[in-house]
């Protein structure tokens, strides 16, 4: 699997992401500067990493979403290429129109930086095939604006089409108010677009991939993506 990680000014998780991708795939990850107008040839997966692009000026992800490289990402996604956005990357994908909805200020107003649990809703997608449906995984979050909101119509469509892939839950898998730490609609942690090839999620699976990190629950996501391309090859 050949991956490309986008780099915007103010992004700070790009190296964590590249490391996790290399660990899973064995391949070097291309780092792609925001001013580029094309992705490296043969790219299988584009990742928009976390951080604080452009200092979160205007709205989180708003300025990065209009960067030249995003036109190339839109073309790539339109052709069915896989795109993963994590944290600020999720915000950028929403702002760029690749995903519906918006990430608002956490309902509790506080920046939340800790481990949370999320439930894998289904395992038959490129982004979840490394897990079992219903599996509960522990992942870190670090964001002030991760409260996913969309209009009722959009939420209904997301649920109806099974496009909510990850949902916040308690350690034993109960989706409730208490585990929905940022107030997201329907406890949404991650969603895909209509075609199912663009995933946005707030938690950081790339930070739970090695024993030294204290947890390896994030590995499944990357392993699943690698499997996807092995199967295709």
């Amino acid at each position: 699997m050949k991956s490309a990680v986008l780099v915007f000014p103010g992004i700070n998780r790009e190296r964590d992401m590249a490391r996790a991708l290399k660990l899973a795939s064995g391949n070097e990850t291309a780092m792609v500067w925001h001013a580029e107008t094309a992705l490296p040839k043969g790219t299988d997966l584009v990742v928009v990493p976390g951080g604080f692009s452009y200092g979160d000026y205007l709205r989180c992800g708003a300025i990065a979403a209009r960067a030249p490289v995003m036109d190339a990402v839109r073309d790539f996604a339109a052709k069915g290429g896989l795109v993963l956005g994590v944290c600020n990357g999720f915000q950028i994908l929403c702002e760029s129109g690749l995903l519906p909805g918006v990430l608002m200020r956490n309902a509790g107003l506080k920046f939340v930086c800790r481990d949370v649990h999320m439930k894998v809703e289904r395992s038959d997608t490129p982004f979840t095939r490394g897990y079992n449906a219903g599996q509960v995984i522990r992942v870190p979050v670090a964001h002030g604006e991760g409260n996913y909101e969309a209009d009722d119509e959009t939420l209904k469509r997301l649920e109806g089409d099974g496009r909510v892939l990850y949902r916040y839950c308690s350690a034993d898998g109960v989706v409730d108010e208490a585990s929905n730490f940022n107030g997201a609609a329907h406890s949404i942690a991650g969603i895909v677009n209509e075609r199912g090839n663009v995933l946005g999620m707030m938690p950081h699976p790339e930070n739970h991939v090695e024993e030294i990190m204290g947890c390896t629950d994030g590995r499944g996501l990357f392993a699943g993506l690698v499997q996807q391309f092995e199967k295709a090859a």
């Binding site: 205007l58 209009r66 918006v102 608002m104 909101e149 209009d151």
Partner: peptide, 9 residues
């Protein structure tokens, strides 16, 4: 429309 406002919200 293009930048200053996110017309979703």
């Amino acid at each position: 429309d293009k930048l200053l406002a996110n017309t979703v919200i």
